[in-house]
Design a binder for these strands. Structure first.
Lengths: 336, 336
DNA sequence: AACCTCAACTTAACCGGTTAATGATAGGAG
DNA sequence: CTCCTATCATTAACCGGTTAAGTTGAGGTT
């Protein structure tokens, strides 16, 4: 493994018989370089296999051409049974690739890593920071924004953190779902809600409550944490509380899948005995038994939108919206 | 959004009444700094909220403290229906976080992004590069290695690319699986293989062929691309070719899930009519109908091991193994 | 011929750290 | 009291680029 010396600007300049500055201008595609010189420099660059040193460049431009995506979970939990983060990453990746920016991924579950993220961003390692769905009223986005670092969140921040964000219409989607159940004649409609320290959990529960109130129905609420296992537990609890339930709105597809399992175990048929609607529209839900009726949220689009907004901020564009809310849509399959 | 000027070493030095060099030594925890001075510097650092500029530091140390993970697919395909990459990322993330390194994620599907990755690595933006399961005989790992950049692959590289790698025992796992089918009295055992331009696809098919040969049975092979949809198609093709099949070894859980769907559609019961064994042991397979017998491969461990090996290379450790092969294990559930 | 203009290149300062070489100071030995 | 040594701080060079300011010379005016 030969650590061949990498050629520097200086070397290219010598070889082409010009000054460093000229080479720099050619490399950066500046105009006002005579064609003959440009050509000579280009040849020297090729012959030496010159690639600009990013650290040196960043040092003077104060730009790194990379963007951080913070996943506010420990690396252990992220991805374990989850399709949300992968989809976000996918969307972000597409958009950043198009802009020729790099993606730096950071897990920030512990308080320790919290400081790590802050230091990292402040050290100027990235041009901007994106936060994927946070728990509670995390102060970090606000802190970074105040330090002048471009920041954007996926999911409306809890508290009045003054940070731009991208979110989906949880409330509207849930209302459509629950109204669908009501319209189908269901009268004992329960919900399995998500964690109440996350906007996605809170807003979806609010949508359920509002719609049931509007319909004058009794509410049955169980809380899960978006995992399949918690969906199983919650469904069991709901059935124990009211064995005559005829529908359940579940705040995530993963939990809905758990609910389907628990319902089958309990001898209920879906949708004849109990109708089930989920939220997410993961690929997997097309293949569940029965295929899951669910509220589609455009997760990858959220990622793309976040990335686009952040790039706008980084480039100092004016008039960017403080909030973008993407639509959700009820996808009717067989479970309801 | 006040872009507050970030304090530099110089500022801290002035404030503490010492030289830049001394501050640098304190910040980097060098010995041979008198306690009183160290304390004064530390105070100045705190008061000013000083954070070292990473670009400046990298410029002189030639280190960036970050590592790239290359996913050789376009961002669009990665993650779409896949649980492999997320698990790799999780493993890598855990290990890098412990070492206080950053993870840079790059999708490299197109030839264009190929050059992008090479330039990025050569520009010294990262200290090392990890490749997740590649297609075909990709020259990039070898190219980077020859340039003196620490490199490691997940999955034995095709061709004789002289690059260290981490892989799992595909062959052994498949043998155990297929022998399990033979031992259960199955005699018409088909396989749905993975893409034949990937080691995981090739080795698993080789395991199937070897074991069937050893048992003196007829081989039935269909090829998929590791997606559920391709599993459905392949299963249909196999049933059309031999309607009396009594078992199928499927080279990935996702495809196995597709096979289960196709078998149900075709009116076959699992395992009584047809036994099914997958490969991966994704979380989801515990909950399929019926729960899937499968070969477990420790994907997150692969990620961790890759990261550890690479960190070793980056730190110039001697005597690192060129290849690490992790064990696989048959997990028997109800589908076979 | 003297002068001006302008395009195109070079010079040199600067970005913010690290570190080898150098210098200063105090304590101990002779 | 002088000299040596050990300890700790400072000076200054360097990492590899970018870019404002300065220089050069060809071509056009009068």
């Amino acid at each position: 493994m030969v650590t061949r010396e990498r050629p520097t600007l200086e070397a290219v300049a010598r070889r082409a018989g010009v000054s460093r500055a000229t080479v720099s201008r050619v490399v950066n595609g500046s105009t006002s370089v005579a064609a003959s010189i440009r050509e000579a420099v280009t040849r020297a660059v090729d012959e030496l296999g010159y690639v600009p040193n990013q650290a040196a460049r960043s040092l003077v431009t104060q730009r790194t051409e990379s963007i951080a995506l913070i996943l506010p979970e420990t690396a252990n939990r992220v991805f374990s049974d989850d399709l949300f983060f992968p989809a976000i990453i996918r969307g972000v990746g597409v958009e950043l690739e198009a802009a020729d920016k790099q993606l730096v991924l950071m897990m920030a579950g512990s308080a320790r890593s919290h400081g790590r993220v802050e230091r990292y961003a402040v050290a100027g390692h990235v041009d901007g920071v994106m936060f994927a769905s946070m728990h509670g009223a995390d102060p970090l986005p606000g802190t970074l924004a105040r330090l002048g670092i471009p920041v954007i969140c996926s999911g409306r921040p809890i508290g009045r953190a003054d940070v731009p964000y991208v979110d989906v219409d949880h409330f509207g989607g849930v209302c459509a779902a629950v109204r669908h159940l009501v319209a189908a004649g269901r009268r004992r409609i329960a919900t399995i809600a998500g964690p109440q320290d996350m906007v996605a959990g809170i807003d979806r529960l609010a949508g359920y409550r509002a719609t049931l109130e509007e319909a004058g129905l009794v509410q049955h609420v169980a809380i899960g944490d978006f995992t399949r296992e918690s969906g199983i537990q919650a469904m069991r609890a709901l059935l124990a509380g009211d064995p005559a339930l005829d529908a359940v709105f579940v705040a995530s597809d993963m939990m809905a899948h758990g609910a389907l399992i628990a319902l089958k175990d309990a001898g209920r048929r879906v949708p004849s005995d109990v109708a089930v609607i989920g939220f997410d529209d993961f690929e997997i839900s097309r293949y569940s038994d029965p295929p899951l009726t669910t509220v589609r949220q455009p997760i990858a689009d959220m990622g793309r939108t976040m990335a686009r907004q952040l790039l706008g901020l980084v480039n100092g564009e004016q008039g960017l919206p403080d909030a973008v809310v993407l639509p959700t849509e009820l996808v009717v399959r067989e479970s309801a």
